[in-house]
Design a protein around this nucleic acid. Sequence first.
RNA 1: GGGCGCAUAGCUCAGCUGGGAGAGCGCCUGCCUUACAAGCAGGAUGUCGGAGGUUCAAGUCCUUCUGCGCCCACCA
Length: 889
Amino acid sequence: MEIPKTYDKNREAQIYERWEKSGYFRADARSEKTPYTVMIPPPNITDKLHMGHALNNTIQDIMVRFKRMNGYEALWVPGTDHAAISTEVVVMKELAKQGITKETLGREGFLEKLWEWNEIYGGKIISQLKTLGSSCDWDRQRFTMDDGLSDAVLEAFVRLYEEGKIYRGERLVNWCIKCGTSISDAEVEHEDRQGHLYYFKYPVAGTSDFIPFATSRPETMLGDTAIAVSPKDERYAHLIGKTAIIPVADNREIPIIADHYVEPEFGTGAVKITPAHDPNDFEVGLRHKLPCINILNGDGTVNENGGKLCGMPREAAREKVIEAMTALGLYIKTDTITHAVGAHDRCDTIVEPLVRLQWFVKMDELAKPAIEALESGRLKFNRERFAKVYMNWLNNIRDWCISRQLWWGHRIPAYYCDCGHVMVQKTAPAACEKCGAASLAQDNDVLDTWFSSALWPFSTLGWPEKTPELEKFYPTDILVTAQDIIFFWVVRMVFMGEKFMGKTPFTHVLINGIVRDEQGRKMSKTLKNGIDPLEIIEEFGADVLRLMLVSGNAIDSDTRFFRERLEPARNFLNKLWNATRFVMMNLEGLGYRDCKIASLDGFGVEDRWILSRCASLTAEVTEKLETHEIGLAVQKIVDFIWDELCDWYVEMAKPRLYGRESEDSRRTAQITLCNVLNTAFKLLHPFCPFITEDLYLALGSTLGGASDGGELGETIMRSAWPAVSAELIDPSAEKAIERVKEAVRGIRAVRTEKQVPPSQKIAVVIVPADSQAKELFTSTKAALALLSGAGEVSVHEPSAAAPTGAVSVVASGATIYLPLDSLVDSEKERARLTKEKKRLEQEIERIDAKLGNEGFVAKAPQAIIEAEREKRGNFAAMLVKVEEELRGV
RNA sequence: GGGCGCAUAGCUCAGCUGGGAGAGCGCCUGCCUUACAAGCAGGAUGUCGGAGGUUCAAGUCCUUCUGCGCCCACCA
């Protein structure tokens, strides 16, 4: 049988295609099995997927595949997000290259372009997810703007409106002058920037007095409607109630008021109040019933309220105001300060607070069940600190501005009549229900993209229809996402889920870290440091990428992407490939059609050892996956396969496989290898789905195409997860093999020290510590010989005398003699044994100190104390042997 | 202003509920041993950031300091 020496990664595509064709990814709403549901965080159709998506989707796939093999009706719903503003910006940029603007195309024409874009990028994303191996149920693929989800959005909007939880009002919103739309608080990024703090003074009407103040935005003087001072501030007490004059605004007079918002220590202790352009001032304005003068247009230019400055951009207007005030002798000074300014997260333009008529979701009542969900434990985060982030946001939540002055998105279902009546309903009304007029205008705005994603866990299952899917698969089990969208998305899904479904949309939130570049920077388009997952998959295969992404990192911490980190992953898969290849080459004459083990009769101690280790591994990996400790789970699998299985057991089995021992022993080695490999394939399958499928099927067909209820049958992904077989766990076999390993390591070390080449087979004499050890070394003689490069191994009686002219190695179960004749140098032997003696004495001393400590003996757990005593006994016995040897040298 | 994270071998990082410091890469030595040189065997390397504390026992828990990084926030 010809099997290539390395795994062919190009087979991944075929394997995926077969899975898809066979319907293995489908979940059935009518199944009797317990559901396990995961909703993909729908990637934005702005671009193809990046490395962060690769990690995020790998984690989801691991959980889904794990649960599917565990007998759950596992459903992973895939889909994409229209990403309102982000996509609109990207498409506008593309169109600009052709000299087209959205205005020239008109609303209809522009939306057509966006749907075309969606065809291309939505498709790319889906094909990337498939390349990665994602086992999504593609029959259920959704898009946030498809008909069903759009209907859900309308339904949610109308219901919230009817309950008074959505309202329209003039509020101060974050306005992006570049995008020409309002944005939510969450979309504003604060950063410290250098700026100026300008000091001016206004004359106080009817007096010769002036009131000084500081501002970082002088142009807003045009919209000032008061000057506020602290009620406790004696300096200005006499001015309260008087009016100040704004010379640059046609000498408009504004009241001087007292408000606790003012900090007397900052600036001059007096603050100009511009309710239309500052959130604090807006609040002050409400308290004092001040007028609100909006001085800016949506594009950032000064409007008609700015008088002579009308039409001027905000920066230019600022200069003009400063000039004018200086000319009037009302300028005092300028300080340089660093202060936090808000910028739009999509375009980095400084956000302008503006009063606008917008739609809002009233958050106070909606937030309560979301807070309660976490407090009651219905909702859990993988790390406590993420729960804190979630809580902090909810406890300080403000109303959510949901209207956006864009075209790409769900258009707000509000219809306006000239008579002033407003109708909010799912379908356009034929006429005004109040005055009967037929000419109605729909609201021009669309909804914040997160409004539709907030409904994702149930809108994807058919809500508001009562579908069997919704009944079966909601609520979902786990949400895997990154920390940066806890407020944007996680919080909102929770309160919408609580609101419309009466249930928390998921029980576990698994926050994964960010994939950074090798310098630890975030991968971004501007830095051009992004790495395309497809390129990596092309070169190494999806299994290698997946393995690398989840290895060697805690799931919640950020990880750096190095190409060098791919190699260990590739090497490991190559190791597994070759180990399997080796086993398959040695299966001749087995005569079994599967690899089940009914009884351990006739199995060697090394067989029982590896089966025991494999059973422990199964238990550990299962437990780690249940608790979402993915990195720890995969590490255990890799260590087991490479170290215990390949480096020890396979080597130990060789003499038996090569037919140098009995036919029965060969068969038990074969069956053990098949059994352990089969388990290893399954445990590794969620992480590396392709290679494990290939090997599982190859091993199955070598055994004769066994078909016993799916085992080694048609696909690994629908096979049963290995059962945790407690009966296979055998501490005595594990202890025994540890003794053999210790002996082998001792011999190898001596060989290296004496520079005996591997080709030189040396004789080994073993004097076991007791009769049990004698039996052990007798039965593993051939394996030990192979592992230590020995020509002949003879096991003597426990009481046998030491051979002369030999190097001795004292191990736990035996003293081993290597008759190396000419190589033996008694000086060196004495030194070596003395060193060993010292080491043992130190160990014993350390344990004695511990056991001599009253506190330890009184308070430490019994098992810990016992283990220390046992170790001491072992060291003491070895010390006696070493001293004996020392006397003989 | 508030909150959080990180600091462990030359590098990148594991180390879950406290019980004798680990992996990969790199480095040194020797090997093409009939599965694998993408490999095998042997080896060197750490006051687990500093200082206190709790405990029989601290990389692990508490306090504090230092240095990086992140998030939230309306000081004009």
